[in-house]
Every structure is written in structure tokens, then in C-alpha cells.
């Protein structure tokens, strides 16, 4: 068995053991957060009663009636509820990644055009990076209200600042000899950017992209925790107000699976784009 396969087996075993430990603890530690709501809900509760109760958050549509209208909780409504809130969270994340990533990257490239603009933005960007992102949720709520746009723009801002700083830094670190060589062959400024600088900064942008993904998830969740009407973060905080620990736990598990999958996807994509780079540049 290869070392990687062995490692995968071990980590699977660890997670299985954790799941088992949780089940044992749910039997041993039977304290309830409130009557009928165990502090540690066992799996038999999570996948039946808890999952069904997610139907409460279904907003209606597709001919599936909502619990608020007096319908019984069904597995169909619960599934739709989970998927729709997940879709809202993912939509916020994707809009934020597109807007923040695009704007940060474009501005970063524009600023790197000359040494003067680079020096001009240095202090303001340092200042903006020093402001703790997650503490800025109230400011964005004030500006844009508790709206989908406001939450997306908040996450986009957090992502944009990271991408901008990383782009400027990456362009500065492109070896001068690449640029001089291209100039020597008569490359225009545009061709220089397209054929030399863009590929050269790609390895450096890999770690920035992973940082952005982490910041994006945190920002979207932070915005949903503090005043949204949709999204998995909203479901968690809304459940918290009634101490429904089981619902919070189930939704958090779904979120962790999604974030892990998104990181796996980003790493695979970058691995494909960076096949040409020597291993030392891919770290």
C-alpha cells in the first residue's frame, strides 16, 4: 500500500472513530440544552428528526407546501430547504469571488503598470488590510442594508483587498530578466502583460486564491450570522436562538463538507494550470 493510500485510510478511520465517539458521548452525556433538545444529539436523531426539522426553513415553491402554512414536515421539504439555503450561500460566495477577485486582480494589474502608482497605493492598502475584515459587517449592513447585494459586496471587499495586494506583490516579484528579454524582442506593453507577466505571476496567485477562498467563506458566514434571511449561516444562527443544537450541528457538518470540497476543487484546478511550473514554484 502506498504512503498516500495509507494516510487516507488512517484519516478515514479517525473520522469514523470521531463519529463513534460522538455517538457514545450522546448516550453518556444526556444533558439537554432545553427540554427535548440534547446537548449532544446522536446520529439516529440527526438523520431523522433533525433533518426533518430543517423543513421549517423551507420558503415554499415547486408545489411543496411550507411548514409555516401548516403542512407536515416532509423529507422532500427538508431536502429542498437545505439545498436552497446552500444555494444562497454558494451564490453569495461565487458573486463575491467573481466581483472581488476580478476587481482586485484588474486594479492590481493596473496599479503595477508603473512604479509610481505602485508606491502611491502602498500605504492605503496597508491600512485597509489592517482593518479586521469580520468586524466590518455592521458597516456594510449600514451601507447596503441586510441584502443579498450587501452581503456579497462585503465578502467581495474582503477578497478584493487580498487579491489586490497579492497581485501587486506578485508583479513586483517577476524577475526583471523576463521583462527585459521580452522588451528586447520588441514586445509591446500589452503583449508583455499577456505573455510574460500573467503567466509568471500565476504560481504566486495560487496561495492568494486559497487565502481568498478561506476569507470568502468566513466573510459570507459572518454576514449571514449577522443579519441575513437566507443561507446556511442564517439557519445556524436562527436555530441558535432556540438552542436547537442538533440543527446547528447538522448544518455545520454540511458546511464543512462544502468548504473542504471547494478547497479540493481549487487545488485541483491550480495543479492543472501549473503543470508547466517547476515543483519549487508550486509550493
Amino acid at each position: 500500500m502506498s504512503a498516500a493510500a495509507k494516510e487516507r485510510l488512517v484519516s478515514l478511520a479517525v473520522f469514523a472513530a470521531l463519529a463513534g465517539l460522538w455517538q457514545i458521548m450522546s448516550r453518556v452525556y444526556v444533558v439537554e440544552a432545553q427540554p427535548g433538545e440534547p446537548m449532544i444529539p446522536g446520529w439516529q436523531i440527526l438523520f431523522t428528526r433533525t433533518f426533518l426539522s430543517l423543513a421549517d426553513y423551507w420558503g415554499g415553491g415547486f408545489g411543496v407546501p411550507t411548514v409555516a402554512d401548516g403542512a407536515a414536515r416532509t423529507y422532500l421539504a427538508a431536502t429542498l430547504s437545505l439545498l436552497s439555503h446552500l444555494a444562497f450561500t454558494l451564490a453569495r460566495l461565487c458573486v463575491a469571488l467573481a466581483l472581488g477577485g476580478g476587481a482586485g486582480f484588474a486594479l492590481g494589474l493596473a496599479v503595477s503598470w508603473s512604479r509610481f502608482t505602485r508606491a502611491l497605493v502602498e500605504w492605503p492598502v496597508h491600512f485597509l488590510r489592517a482593518l479586521p475584515l469580520l468586524a466590518m459587517v455592521p458597516l456594510f449592513q449600514l451601507w447596503f442594508g441586510a441584502t443579498f447585494l450587501g452581503q456579497s459586496l462585503f465578502a467581495a471587499y474582503g477578497i478584493g483587498v487580498i487579491v489586490f495586494a497579492a497581485t501587486v506583490n506578485a508583479v513586483r516579484n517577476v524577475p526583471q530578466i523576463y521583462i527585459d528579454n521580452a522588451r528586447l524582442f520588441g514586445a509591446s506593453r500589452f503583449a508583455l502583460y499577456r505573455d510574460v507577466i500573467l503567466p509568471a505571476i500565476l504560481p504566486a496567485m495560487r496561495s492568494a486564491a486559497l487565502l481568498c477562498l478561506a476569507a470568502g467563506w468566513s466573510a459570507v458566514l459572518g454576514a449571514e450570522y449577522l443579519g441575513a434571511q437566507t443561507g446556511l449561516g442564517y439557519v445556524i444562527v436562527y436555530a441558535q436562538q432556540f438552542a436547537y443544537l442538533d440543527r446547528m450541528f447538522l448544518v455545520a457538518l454540511v458546511l464543512i463538507v462544502c468548504t473542504s470540497a471547494s478547497f479540493r476543487l481549487a487545488q485541483t484546478l491550480f495543479a492543472r494550470w501549473l503543470v508547466w511550473a517547476p515543483p519549487s514554484m508550486r509550493a
Partner: peptide, 12 residues
């Protein structure tokens, strides 16, 4: 995983 997920749990 975004660590912020844990905040509501810790509050309880």
C-alpha cells in the same frame, strides 16, 4: 473550514 462556524456553538 471557516472557524467562524463554531461561534454559535461556543455561545451555547
Amino acid at each position: 473550514a471557516p472557524i467562524i462556524i463554531a461561534a454559535p456553538f461556543l455561545l451555547i
